[in-house]
Amino acid sequence: MVLDKDALWYRIKKMNSLSTLPEIYDRVSDMINDPKTSAANLASVISRDETLVAKLLRIANSPFYKATPEKITSITFAVALLGFNATKNLVLSVSIFDLFHTFEESLKVTVRGFWKHSITCAVASKIIAQNARHKNPEEMFVSGLLHDIGKIVEIQYMPEDFKKIINIINTKEVSMKDAEEEVLKYSHTDVGKMLGVHWNLSPRIIDCVRLHHIPDKAIENLTEVSIVHTANVLSHSLELDYKVPVLNQKAWEILNLKIDSLEPILKQLKKESIEAIAVLFPKK
């Protein structure tokens, strides 16, 4: 069954497991929007979830995520050091994996591949952000992590269509986007955008999801979109599982990176993405 965009939007709203982000993320978001919230309040709410705390601290101290040299030993310290927004992004980065779990056996490999690519792109976005002196590498991490989130909706809710799409990519050598349009009439960037709006993510993150294949269409968040676009190209270059997409000229120009920085960036990406996958999406 092929859904048009309106029907899809309706369906996204009805998907129970996707209709809300992990509860803890919503609570953290609400608290951050409330000017009365103190760092101690926020820390105490997060601290109630022990598994989450363990994951958060582990990631906050990992080289692939870390933005500060200090060792973060408690959530209170994390909130104080990172600030509210980065804490929120960190919570989102670790809890997003809990949202999607019911997959048929034949899609397990695809799903794992999907998360590996997403995590690689998250790490790449952070590395590029740091190289381009962007002020918010943590937000770029989560933007990279979510850039293809529409694909996981397709895998989970339209598995037959998704298999068709993969088939087209493998036989006709076309891009994911073209194959999706052929089967679904829309692409993972449209689905991802709807999900982002529904989840109330920041407009910057939504733009990265929506425009990462056409960064020159970005108006307000050109730098952020260009970071994720370039991160996606670098991730595919290392993964080599699909055709590597071509870098957009405007995106490259706006980042103002030196061509010489590519080698250290790619080497760092290779190393840190392996670590990040092991921490965020361990093989069970």
Binding site: L234, V244, V246, I259, L262, L266
Partner: peptide, 9 residues
């Protein structure tokens, strides 16, 4: 330039 970058990558 973008093509040069891709060649370098």
């Amino acid at each position: 330039m973008a093509v040069k970058v891709m060649m370098e990558i």
